[in-house]
Amino acid sequence: MIRDLFSKKRRQAKIPRDEAKKEVPEGIMAKCPECKSICYIKELRKNDMVCEQCGYHHRLTAGERLHCTIDEDSFQEINAGMISKDPLNFPEYEEKSREDREKTGLSEAIVTGTASIGGYPVVIAVMDASFRMGSMGSVVGEKIVRAVNRAIEDKTPFILFSASGGARMQEGVVSLMQMAKTSTALRKLHEENLLFISVMTHPTTGGVSASFASLGDVNLAEPGALIGFAGRRIIEQTIRQKLPDNFQTAEFLMEHGQLDQVIHRHHMKKTLTTLTAIHQPQEED
């Protein structure tokens, strides 16, 4: 019957899952976690991985971060070949680290080097969450310390972009020791009257947020970034209180004095240039 042609069952017919996958090739389109809009990844990259519809800041790789932050062709990587050992003989740790190196093209979860921003020389470090979730192991800590020492040697500002799930559990106490190690190095930078700018991106959590990421002379963050130590559920269970909806976001921390400013990604380079310029050493008369 004609009525059957327009039945609810017919109108809800769906394309088979395998065929649907063929319609949108992987790596071509991206869905915004915030507003759910869909766009071409190519267009998203042109906008520095910021959603044009709602302004959501997608994660950047270390290479993408450097591309949109520093002056073109100014980056010179330092300590590039350092690779983590397996101090605890943790099951499958070396194998998974090797897989991450092959997948990301990085030797570790952080890239460090010298560069210029707005024409001003800096030492810069960028964490990459795609490598072991940006977790802080012995090599991450050592590369930060060496980068700080290079900034002291060159008498230039030190800029660090954090993106991390915290300390790397596969290295146990060796990883936790990096909190004190990096903090001590930054203290030496402070004693030399050199600028340290910490930029916290999504996410910056655990031992990273509790150590070097929060020790900047200027602490900045990207909009909507998750920043905190323990997880929301653990805190609520401990204090037996409901936390605000925007708890542990960059905006919440800004309101409560832990951040100096929340900076849109498109304005980050200009802000860093201004901060670096006003902290240049003055020539004596």
Rank of each mutant, 00 (worst) to 15 (best):
F247P: 04
M179R: 11
H202L: 05
A230T: 13
V262Q: 14
T249G: 03
Q178P: 00
T273R: 13
I197Y: 08
F229Q: 12
E236S: 08
H190R: 14
H264R: 13
V173R: 14
L272V: 08
R232P: 02
L195N: 09
I239F: 13
L272A: 03
M177A: 12
R232I: 09
I227Y: 03
Q237L: 14
D245C: 05
G206Q: 01
F196S: 07
E192Y: 05
G228T: 09
S211F: 01
L176P: 02
S209T: 09
K270F: 10
P223N: 12
N219T: 10
V199P: 01
A167R: 01
L189Q: 08
L194H: 05
T273S: 15
L253Q: 11
E171T: 10
Q241Y: 08
G257P: 01
L220Y: 06
T249A: 03
G231N: 15
V199A: 02
L259C: 07
K269T: 15
Q237R: 15
F212R: 04
A221M: 11
L259H: 07
F229G: 10
S198H: 09
S209P: 01
I235D: 02
A225N: 12
I235N: 03
V208K: 00
R265K: 10
R233C: 06
N246C: 00
T182K: 02
Q261H: 14
I235V: 13
K269C: 09
M169H: 11
A230K: 12
G206N: 02
Q237S: 15
H202P: 02
K269M: 12
L215P: 03
M268V: 02
Q261F: 11
A210I: 05
M200H: 01
E255Q: 06
A225E: 11
I197T: 12
I235A: 01
I239L: 14
A210P: 05
S214E: 09
I227D: 08
N219L: 04
A221S: 15
A210E: 14
K270M: 14
P244V: 04
E171C: 06
A230G: 10
L259Y: 07
M268A: 03
N246P: 01
H267C: 10
H264L: 07
A221G: 10
P223E: 13
F229Y: 13
Q241E: 15
P203K: 06
H256C: 00
D260T: 07
T184C: 09
T184Q: 12
R233E: 15
M179W: 01
F229T: 13
